[in-house]
Computed example of a mutant assay.
Amino acid sequence: GVEASKIIRNDSDKAIANIPIIALTANVMKDDITRYLSIGMNAHVAKPIKAQKLRETIILCLSK
C-alpha cells in the first residue's frame, strides 16, 4: 500500500495521481496513521473494518 501510494501520487497523469487512497490496516498507532497521510493517502480505516466507518470514509474522500 505505501509503495503503491507513492507511485500513484507521483504519476504524471493528474487524474491518476489524485485518485482517493484509503489505508485499510491494523496499524493504528498515531505515527502509523501520520505516515500514511504524509505520503498522500487521503484517510485511514482501522481493521477490523466496520462497514459504516468505511462507507463514511469513502463518501468523505469522494466529496473533496
Score class of each variant (00 low, 15 high):
G1N: 05
G1R: 08
G1S: 14
G1L: 11
V2T: 11
V2N: 13
V2C: 07
E3A: 10
A4M: 11
A4S: 06
A4L: 15
A4P: 00
S5K: 01
S5Y: 01
S5D: 00
K6W: 01
K6Q: 08
I7M: 13
I7A: 15
I8S: 07
I8P: 09
N10W: 02
N10K: 15
N10P: 03
N10D: 09
D11Y: 06
D11P: 00
D11W: 03
D11F: 06
S12I: 11
S12V: 09
S12H: 11
D13H: 03
K14P: 13
K14R: 09
K14I: 13
K14Y: 07
A15L: 14
A15W: 06
I16E: 03
I16G: 01
I16T: 12
A17C: 11
N18C: 12
N18F: 12
N18S: 15
N18D: 14
I19C: 04
I19A: 05
P20M: 01
P20C: 02
I21K: 04
I22A: 05
I22L: 04
A23D: 03
A23G: 05
A23R: 06
L24V: 12
L24W: 03
T25L: 00
T25M: 02
T25D: 03
A26E: 05
A26N: 04
N27M: 05
N27T: 03
N27L: 10
V28P: 00
V28D: 14
V28Y: 09
M29Y: 11
M29D: 08
K30P: 06
K30W: 03
D32K: 00
D32G: 04
D32N: 11
I33F: 05
I33H: 06
T34E: 15
T34G: 01
T34H: 09
R35E: 08
Y36L: 01
Y36A: 05
L37D: 04
L37F: 12
L37M: 14
L37K: 14
S38D: 13
S38H: 10
S38W: 04
I39G: 06
G40E: 12
G40F: 10
G40D: 11
M41Y: 01
M41E: 00
M41P: 00
N42Q: 06
N42C: 11
N42K: 08
A43S: 09
A43P: 03
A43G: 02
H44M: 10
V45C: 15
V45N: 12
A46S: 15
K47S: 13
K47R: 14
P48Q: 05
P48M: 08
P48W: 06
P48S: 07
I49R: 10
I49C: 07
I49D: 04
K50H: 12
K50P: 00
A51Q: 10
K53I: 14
L54H: 14
L54P: 11
L54F: 12
L54M: 15
L54A: 14
R55K: 11
E56W: 07
E56H: 13
T57C: 12
T57I: 06
I58M: 10
I58K: 09
I58Q: 06
I58P: 10
I58G: 06
L60D: 14
L60S: 13
C61F: 00
C61A: 09
C61K: 00
L62W: 11
S63W: 03
S63H: 07
K64A: 06
